[in-house]
Every structure is written in structure tokens, then in C-alpha cells.
């Protein structure tokens, strides 16, 4: 099986610290989101990225503010990593008027166009062709914007994935297909229901793409490989697909304790937790413990403040219910 060897990380110290802060913030946000569920502040469902933060942080660091993210229903981390503040995301989870979409989208549909977060999509694979469309628009208008579409290992067996890959290759679109392979397709082991070992990478050659597999728990590696793919897309050399091996520490969604996973597997991946690993790397490279503690304290305070600010938001009412079905702002379908 082909795999791309990755050069050691070259990003500078300030950026590494920023990537650490981003990963730590994503972890603290998701942990708090889980607590808010237990306290019944957050209703419905939610899919946390705990354990997969290196991907969101590393990819976002490789993107320009004008680039586009297309996330899945496991999209809190990707949304925040593009710079969306915590308060409106917490508030959206809680269904408040100060939510990112005033409570009309919820956890699975986080969107912030001003940050280039062009939606989180809850139908598996649907956003892959949509990302192609954004990339086509950049290509047509002659901008050098790039679209990055995240998806899980479970998405590779749905038709839209294959349609999008072929389409992007044929039209040479500036789009990055980024597979977060966390080994589990909801409650089923992906390898039990997938014809190839590496769900995304082993399909790449079918679309004339390079097979790229990386350690998704290493933010530096994610950053480096994504940067290369983005540069290629900006240069007009077409799409790339990256498969990042990772693991979600919890279950698929709020309702799932994830007990179907063997204890040894969990232990193995907990030992590869991206955040302590990255922290240690920073310390070894000369960053001081006190600096990291200060960053962590800042993030924790931000999470606390954002939680309270979100809770203070209003409850949406009828005015929002009937708003924005149409571009004129309303919901009228007749005269």
C-alpha cells in the first residue's frame, strides 16, 4: 500500500503554540458541551470530536481566511478551529437566540459564512459534491480559494463520495477531501463493512489521486500534508484526498457510550491522545511549562465565560420560526 512519507514539521514555534492552544480549546469546549448535555442545557444530539482535535487544528492552520470548510455533523471542532467564537457555538447547541444560527440549525449544522465555515452537513457524504461546487466557483471566478471537505470513514461507501471524487478529478477542482478515519462507522467497525483496508486512501487511485495516509493525531503532520495539498489546489493542479488515522475517545453521539470497542483498542489510542503528545513536544522543543499553563488557564476561562454568555441568551420565538425560508427573509409561499 502506497503512503506518503512526511517531512518533519517545519512550522515555527509561535504557530505551534497557536496549534496547541487551538487543540486544547477544542478539547475543553467539547468536554463542556458534554457536561451541558448532562445538565440538560443541550437537547437533541451531538457528536463530539474529543480525540480528533489535531485534525481540525492542523487543517485550519493550513487554510487562509478566504478558504472554505465543509464539515460533517461532527463539526464543532472544525467550526471553532476557523475562528468562530465559543459563545455562539455553545448558544447554538443550547437553542438560544445568540446561537450561531439563532437556534435554527443546531449542533449538526454549524455554519459561519464570515469565517469560511460553509456548513456542517448531517447527511453522510452530501457535502462532498457541494464542496466541489464551491471549488468550481473559485475556479470559474479565478480566485485562488480552496475548499476543504471533512468526512468520516463511514462516508466512503456512499454514492455521493464517489460522484464527488470523480467530478473533482475530471474538472480539476481546488478541493481537498479530508477523511478522519476514526475506525468506527457509528456502532460498526468500518473494516467489517468496507472492501479495502484504508477506506479513503485505497480508493484514491480509482480517481487518479495519490494515496495519502497520515497520523491524524499529530497536528504538525496534519498541517504539513494539508499545506501541500492546498498549495497544489491553489496552483490549479486539482484535488487531493488525505486519510488521517485517528480515534474518537467517546461514542458516536450523545446516546452512545461506545462500549462495543475493545478496552485494549481504547487504551492504545488514549496513549496516542494528540493533546498531551503535542504538549510534550512543545516542552521538549523549549517552550516553558508556565507559558503552557497560562494558555490553558486562558482557555478554561474562555470556556467558562462563553458558557455563561450562551446561557444568558434568549429563547427563540415565532419571529425566528417564520424567518428566512426565502431570500426576502420570509416564509410566504402564496399571495
Amino acid at each position: 500500500m502506497a503512503s506518503t512519507k512526511v517531512a518533519p514539521a517545519q512550522s515555527d514555534v509561535a504557530q505551534k503554540i497557536a496549534m496547541y492552544k487551538s487543540q486544547f480549546a477544542l478539547r475543553q469546549f467539547e468536554t463542556r458541551a458534554y457536561d451541558l448535555f448532562l445538565e440538560n442545557y443541550v437537547k437533541g444530539t451531538s457528536h463530539l470530536s474529543i480525540g480528533q482535535e489535531a485534525i481540525a487544528a492542523g487543517v485550519a492552520a493550513a487554510m487562509r481566511p478566504t478558504d472554505w470548510t465543509f464539515a460533517t455533523y461532527r463539526g464543532h471542532a472544525h467550526t471553532l478551529a476557523r475562528g468562530v467564537p465559543m459563545t455562539p457555538v455553545f448558544a447554538e447547541l443550547m437553542g438560544r437566540t445568540n446561537g450561531l444560527m439563532a437556534g435554527k440549525g443546531g449542533s449538526m449544522h454549524l455554519t459561519s459564512v464570515e469565517h469560511g465555515v460553509m456548513g456542517s452537513y448531517a447527511i453522510i457524504g452530501a457535502h462532498l459534491p457541494i464542496a466541489c461546487g464551491a471549488a468550481w466557483s473559485a475556479q470559474y471566478r479565478g480566485t485562488d480559494q480552496v475548499a476543504v471537505a471533512f468526512f468520516g470513514d463511514g462516508s466512503v461507501n456512499i454514492g455521493a463520495f464517489h460522484e464527488a471524487l470523480n467530478f473533482a478529478a475530471v474538472w480539476k477542482l481546488p478541493v481537498i477531501f479530508f477523511c478522519e478515519n476514526n475506525l468506527w462507522m457509528e456502532y460498526t467497525r468500518t473494516s467489517d463493512v468496507t472492501a479495502v483496508v484504508n477506506p479513503a486512501a485505497d480508493r484514491a487511485s480509482a480517481y487518479g489521486l495519490e494515496s495519502i495516509i497520515i497520523d491524524g493525531n499529530d497536528a504538525d503532520e496534519v498541517y504539513e500534508v494539508t499545506s501541500r495539498a492546498i498549495a497544489r489546489a491553489r496552483a490549479g493542479d486539482g484535488p487531493s484526498m488525505i486519510e488521517a488515522k485517528t480515534y474518537r475517545h467517546g461514542g458516536h453521539s450523545r446516546a452512545d457510550p461506545g462500549k462495543y470497542r475493545p478496552a485494549e483498542e481504547i487504551a492504545e489510542w488514549m496513549a496516542k491522545d494528540p493533546i498531551p503528545r503535542y504538549r510534550l513536544r512543545l516542552l521538549e522543543s523549549g517552550v516553558s511549562e508556565s507559558e503552557l499553563l497560562e494558555i490553558e488557564a486562558q482557555v478554561n476561562a474562555e470556556v467558562d465565560d462563553a458558557t455563561e454568555a450562551a446561557k444568558a441568551g434568549g429563547v427563540p420565538g415565532e419571529d425566528l420560526l417564520m424567518k428566512d425560508v426565502w431570500a426576502d427573509g420570509g416564509a410566504a409561499w402564496r399571495n
Binding site: 472554505w68 456548513g119 459534491p129 457541494i130
Partner: peptide
Amino acid sequence: GAAMGAAMT
């Protein structure tokens, strides 16, 4: 999908 992505951008 392409039409949608193009329209939103």
C-alpha cells in the same frame, strides 16, 4: 451539489 456550492459562493 456543484450547483449548490457554486450558488452559495
